[in-house]
């Protein structure tokens, strides 16, 4: 995918917030995320974008997980925004409470964000999240999807791709990796609630990520943004490759970029430079068992089917609007 550089240099437009000196650095230096952590970058990009779009008036509620643990080891804290943490599974509910409190104080201009990992969002926090959507609470929920429970040592979550190796889905004789379960498509679950805005985004396309968060933060009611954030430790690739891996996921169709309004697909980003799923999977050790001497083409077909179905369902072919 030919994206432009962060300053927009090569296309002379699209300068990102991240390229500007005026960015807020909402998540600042000294945090304890691993080298090359995609989640740390994704969070700074998303929260900076929200900060910018809401003229600095934001409050962030964080679920337990890597992001929370690496950003706040008491008494040190890496957040340059009002930030609070309660539990693993209740970020959506706490954020709802914060929004209600601000509302009752008449502070309608302060925008509320809840954020957490894929486990916090799609698994343990699903009840609270669904409730928040159901009530259409005025909260933007951002999920940083690194496709496993990273903070506790890479256990499978509902968003772990089929066949990926995790600490709890180890390849063995009968199965090449995790049992191909259906998994949870959290963006689709959010869309099923017909909330005003749902989007997927990736650190492989910062322009797009910033645009979506900036838009979402100023919509009243429930919003959901699902951000793809590769994890070098859990996925097993070189720390320098985080952005590249994110970009490849978009290009092969396994991570579709789209927006939905009130439950309906509104826009999607066409894949400019399509690649095969192998190009994306091969550099990651979590898929190593799909290649080499024990490889079976059926396993790859499972993933290829997902990519192809995404391309069709989200209209990622060249004709989609972008």
């Amino acid at each position: 995918m030919s994206s432009s550089t962060l300053s927009g240099e090569s296309s002379k437009k699209n300068s990102t917030i991240q390229s500007r000196r005026s960015r807020n650095n909402s998540l600042t230096s000294g945090h304890r995320a691993c080298q090359g952590c995609g989640e740390a970058l994704g969070a700074r990009c998303a929260i900076d974008a929200a900060y910018h779009a809401a003229a600095g008036k934001i409050t962030v509620v964080n679920a337990t997980g890597c992001l929370e643990v690496f950003s706040c080891s008491f008494p040190e804290n890496a957040w340059n925004v009002p930030w609070l943490h309660s539990l693993f599974g209740n970020a959506a509910a706490v954020a709802t409470g914060v929004a209600a409190a601000l509302h009752s104080q008449g502070k309608e201009d302060v925008r509320v964000i809840a954020q957490g990992g894929d486990g916090a969002t799609g698994d343990i926090g699903m009840g609270c999240l669904s409730g928040m959507f159901d009530r259409n609470d005025d909260v933007l929920y951002i999920c940083y999807d690194n496709q496993a429970y990273m903070n506790t040592g890479v256990q499978r979550s509902g968003t772990t791709p089929p066949l990926a190796r995790t600490a709890t889905t180890v390849p063995h004789k009968n199965y090449a990796g995790s049992d191909p379960q259906t998994g949870k498509n959290v963006a689709q679950i959010a869309m099923a609630h017909e909330i005003p805005y749902v989007a997927t985004a990736s650190i492989g396309n910062i322009q797009d990520l910033e645009k979506k968060v900036s838009k979402a933060i100023n919509i009243r009611g429930s919003k959901y943004v699902h951000v793809h954030v590769p994890c070098p430790l859990g996925w097993g690739y070189d720390t320098a490759e985080t952005i590249k891996i994110a970009r490849l996921a978009i290009q092969c169709g396994l991570f579709p970029l789209f927006e939905a309004e009130y439950g309906k697909l509104a826009r999607s980003t066409a894949i400019e430079d399509p690649i095969s799923i192998e190009d994306y999977l091969k550099p990651q050790k979590r898929f190593a068992h799909l290649f080499g001497k024990n490889a079976s083409s059926e396993s790859l077909d499972i993933l290829r089917k997902i990519a192809n179905s995404n391309i069709e369902k989200y209209r990622l072919g060249k004709t989609a609007d972008d």
Partner: peptide
């Protein structure tokens, strides 16, 4: 823009400088 650790400083004239106090050496 991509440094997950915010370890690059951008000067007013656009010049960039690596802040080795925080750079973890990820290579992104």
């Amino acid at each position: 823009g991509y440094c997950p650790d915010n370890a690059i400083t951008k000067r007013a004239n656009g010049d960039l400088e690596i802040n080795y106090n925080y750079c973890k050496g990820c290579g992104i």
